[in-house]
């Protein structure tokens, strides 16, 4: 057996920095409050992170492809409102595919603007953030949307049921994570996403259809948002127009916390899942420690910055560096 040198440990920490940070957080919170590691608490955290998590899976594709998606929060509100409205008009069996089609159409529009017209994704999706919000309000007339028969619909299973003791939202999150992880890590399409995000020009010079790949990343993001909207609608069976407001930044934080580069070309679904869980457990842990809800916003931010900084510092081997 080779001996573990200081250098080996350093390299391990550099590569697995986020995972290590995760474990450290868990231990710290567990010491502060033993309830933190109780099975029902853990399930509770994962379950409440699932909606954010599903959205983060899609945004991971967009970010690795070298773009941003700030529209996912308001797009999720849109999906939720639409599926709730159509539930009573068409029945859940038709409402779900109809809502998916409408959300995917929005994704296609963004994908067209960013992929084919090569517009800056920050500007396009920031604009779509408010445009879609307006669309949602127009659709709902500004009113909250509620399902009439909250007791009798099978639709509630998606957000509230469990199979073999595991909550359905967790199963959806896990299932989607596995499928998308395979897609990103193992298929030719996934490889092209990394190539386009890593060096779009070189990808073009290698015959990779850059525009189509970028377009597809937004379609995947929209699909995930539609799934999240469905979960959200099912969980509450009624919703405000602003249910997803602000989630775009939390989603982005989870993706970056997981270690995807904002410049594109790096990251994995697995890391994003870790990022989502860290965020979820931090917020839960802070609650259990007894901090007031709104203090969380600040503390969460501090922890994100700390984690990202440690990650970068570990990669370059010192805490402060004159060069990146």
């Amino acid at each position: 057996m080779a001996e573990l040198t200081k250098q080996d440990i350093g390299r391990f920490l550099a590569r697995q920095g986020i995972l290590v940070a995760f474990v450290v957080f868990m231990i710290a919170f567990a010491l502060a409050n033993p309830r933190f590691l109780a099975v029902d608490n853990i399930f509770g955290v994962i379950r409440s992170s699932a909606i954010l998590g599903v959205m983060a899976l899609g945004v991971t594709f967009v970010v690795i492809g070298g773009n941003l998606d700030l529209s996912v929060g308001s797009m999720m509100s849109f999906s939720t409102i639409v599926v709730l409205d159509l539930h009573d008009k068409l029945g859940p069996t038709l409402a779900i595919p109809a809502m998916f089609a409408m959300t995917l159409a929005l994704g296609a529009f963004i994908g067209f603007l960013v992929g084919y017209l090569k517009l800056n994704s920050l500007i396009v999706t920031l604009g779509m953030l408010s445009a879609i919000h307006g669309l949602t309000l127009t659709y709902s007339g500004g009113k909250n949307m509620d399902i009439a028969d909250k007791e009798g619909t099978w639709f509630a299973v998606i957000g509230q049921g469990s199979i073999a003791g595991i909550p359905v939202p967790i199963l959806l999150f896990a299932g989607l994570a596995i499928v998308l992880s395979m897609m990103l890590g193992k298929t030719p399409f996934g490889r092209k996403v990394y190539a386009v995000g890593g060096n779009g020009t070189a990808a073009t010079f290698s015959g990779v259809p850059r525009a189509r790949v970028v377009f597809m990343t937004y379609m995947i993001s929209a699909f995930c948002v539609a799934t999240a909207g469905m979960m959200q609608a099912s969980r509450s069976l009624g919703s405000q127009n602003t249910v997803g407001q602000g989630m775009e930044l939390e989603v982005l934080a989870a993706v970056i916390l997981g270690g995807a580069s904002l410049l594109g070309g790096s990251g994995t679904i697995f890391k994003t899942v870790i990022g989502v869980l860290i965020l979820g457990f931090i917020q839960n842990g802070l609650l259990l420690v007894g901090l007031e809800f709104y203090v969380q916003y600040v503390v969460t931010w501090v922890i994100i910055i700390l984690a990202v900084w440690l990650d970068i510092a570990a990669k370059r081997g010192r805490l402060l560096s004159p060069i990146a």
Partner: peptide
């Protein structure tokens, strides 16, 4: 700039 994705491995 045009030939390689520098952040990708040799094989890919």
């Amino acid at each position: 700039g045009q030939g390689l994705v520098l952040g990708m491995n040799c094989r890919d």
